[in-house]
């Protein structure tokens, strides 16, 4: 059984008299441990799909089952709790809290869980170690480079040990060396920790690090790209 199952997934927005449909009856299955890159032109629905999977948006129709849970049926409060346990979100602009240190930023999602201070600190330390930024744990975001900030953001995303990492243009604001380093880190998290990663990107270079690349256009899957190159493909798209 797939980790993520989207069936006839549709998302509509009303804008004045017009109805905009960024996702239009999308069917998709994503296996656990996959590293999927979503590409497509602006307005193709890739970020909408990412947000639905992340549980920060709700579909207008269709079903979205993740880990056996139909998240479209959850209340806002239960959805928030579900997100905190199952999803790690990596943002393009890192979204670190400027008044908190790297350590405290990574600690934020853990405060939603019932953990002792000692356990919490240990897990933050592990996450920072894993992304190679432990020596900067006392630094504030303004004291870090863009690449370092994104590493802290990734540590924050993995610290709760979620099954799924969603990344919205994770290298969009980074220079090439930093971008490569971040992509290698994501690849390692996928390989070593078996995290399922779904990444939205405009940069074809970053797709090289993913196991699959899917192209969306007008709210539908256009093709299953990159299968030949990466040698994977089962389960991605249907």
């Amino acid at each position: 059984m797939s980790l993520i199952e989207c069936v006839n997934l549709t998302r509509e927005y009303r804008k004045g008299e017009n109805i905009i449909r960024p996702l239009d009856g999308l069917d998709l299955e994503i296996e656990a441990g996959d590293f999927l890159a979503l590409m497509g032109p602006s307005g193709s629905g890739k970020t909408t799909l990412l947000n639905l999977i992340a549980g920060i948006d709700s579909p207008t129709s269709g079903s979205l089952v993740i880990g056996g849970v139909d998240i479209s049926s959850l209340s806002k409060r239960r959805l928030a709790a579900w997100r905190s346990e199952n999803i790690g979100y990596v943002f393009q602009l890192y979204n670190l809290v400027p008044v908190l240190t790297a350590f405290e930023n990574v600690e934020l999602p853990l405060l939603l869980q019932k953990l002792s201070t000692k356990e919490r600190r240990a897990r933050v330390g592990e996450a920072l170690e894993m992304v190679g930024i432990a020596d900067r744990h006392n630094h504030y975001p303004r004291q870090l480079s863009g690449g370092q900030e994104q590493r802290v953001a990734i540590a924050r995303a993995i610290v709760t040990d979620p099954a799924i990492l969603v990344a919205d243009e994770p290298t969009g604001d980074l220079d090439k060396p930093s971008a490569k380093s971040v992509m290698l880190l994501l690849q390692r998290l996928n390989a070593d920790l078996n995290k399922t990663i779904i990444m939205v990107t405009h940069d074809p270079h970053t797709t090289e690090f993913a196991k699959h690349t899917l192209h969306l256009e007008k709210g539908r899957l256009l093709e299953q790209a990159g299968v030949a190159e990466s040698g994977v493909g089962e389960g991605a798209g249907r």
Binding site: A54, I56, K76, R77, A80, A81, R83, S84, E85, I87, Y89, F91, L93, N95, V97, L108, P109, L112, R156
Partner: peptide, 14 residues
């Protein structure tokens, strides 16, 4: 606003 959005994405309730 963006930071508040991030906190919600992490799982904090409104």
């Amino acid at each position: 606003v963006r930071e508040v959005g991030m906190l919600q994405a992490l799982g904090y309730t409104r």
